[in-house]
Every structure is written in structure tokens, then in C-alpha cells.
């Protein structure tokens, strides 16, 4: 999907507005976390989240995580108009609890990985990603 520069700016502006005025139908970051954890306590640590410090383009940002012992991991982009990114459920034949994806980030923000462990506890990691607009390419 292609964004013109104008659309990208519009999306950025929209995202900024949304940060102040939550729009009905789009769950907040806290709601997305609670939806996954059921309100349980989330302890920071025990999960490794890797993302670029500066993303050259917010349209395609490579991220990966490693959450040893997790049964599921939810990725949340805290600054996106809709913060949910993906929920990864590991099956019995998962080789480990790691996964790499490419994601869209509307602006500079924190990306969260919340891991549900086999014992029902929750762990998390957070990485700040600076997003630059556009670029000329080539």
C-alpha cells in the first residue's frame, strides 16, 4: 500500500490528534494490555524486544522478540492510532518463543512486547523507536 507524502503527513497528524482524543472503537493502550492480561500484573524483564533505534521509514520497521517460556506474546505500538500489532501464539512444535515481523509505526513511540508465560504470569519489554518521515530513497 502506497502513501503519498501528503497522506503520510495526514496520517501523522491524525495519529497526533488521536493521542489526545481517543476515538470510539479504537481501544487504548491500557485496554489492549488488559484485554491480553485480564488485568494481571505485568513484570518488566524476561523478554527481549529488538527494534531499530531510528526507523528510516515508519511504513516498514523490522522488529523481533524472544520470550523464553512464553505461550503467547502481544505486540503493541503505543503511538499508533490503533495500538494492536499482532498476537503470536506458540504451539507445541514451536522451536523457541521468538518471532520477527515488519510493522507500521505512525510516529516516534514505544513498542511493547507482553508475554504470557506458561504459569499464567506476564512479562514485558519496551523499546523506543524514533520514526522519520519519508526520506528520498535511492
Amino acid at each position: 500500500m502506497e502513501f503519498t507524502r501528503r497522506e503520510t503527513l495526514a496520517i501523522g497528524a491524525g495519529a497526533a490528534a488521536l493521542a489526545v482524543l481517543p476515538i470510539r472503537g479504537m481501544a487504548s493502550v491500557d485496554e489492549e494490555i488488559a484485554d491480553f492480561t485480564g488485568g494481571a500484573e505485568v513484570v518488566e524483564g524476561g523478554v527481549t524486544l529488538t527494534a531499530p533505534e531510528i526507523a528510516e521509514n515508519g511504513n516498514t520497521v523490522p522488529i523481533s522478540f524472544d520470550a523464553p517460556g512464553a505461550v503467547a506474546v502481544r505486540i503493541i505500538a503505543t503511538g499508533n492510532p490503533s495500538p494492536k500489532v499482532a498476537t503470536v501464539n506458540f504451539g507445541p512444535l514451536a522451536g523457541n518463543q521468538s518471532c520477527a515481523l515488519r510493522i507500521r509505526l505512525a510516529r516516534t513511540q514505544d513498542v511493547l512486547a507482553i508475554a504470557k508465560m506458561a504459569d499464567g504470569s506476564f512479562k514485558s519489554a519496551k523499546v523506543a523507536v524514533k520514526v522519520t518521515i519519508g526520506g528520498c530513497g535511492g
Binding site: N57, I133, G135
Partner: peptide, 23 residues
């Protein structure tokens, strides 16, 4: 140039897949 690192504008890699427009 702002956040963009200017290249020499070489075209040895074209066609190029750009993250910006994903094509």
C-alpha cells in the same frame, strides 16, 4: 537533509524496493 542521509543518487540498484511505498 533533515532525517534523510543523502546518497550519490546512483541507479545501480534499480528497480528498488522502497520501504516507503512497499513496491
Amino acid at each position: 537533509i533533515r532525517a534523510d542521509h543523502l546518497s550519490q543518487g546512483q541507479i545501480n540498484g534499480f528497480p528498488v524496493y522502497r520501504l516507503k511505498n512497499a513496491k
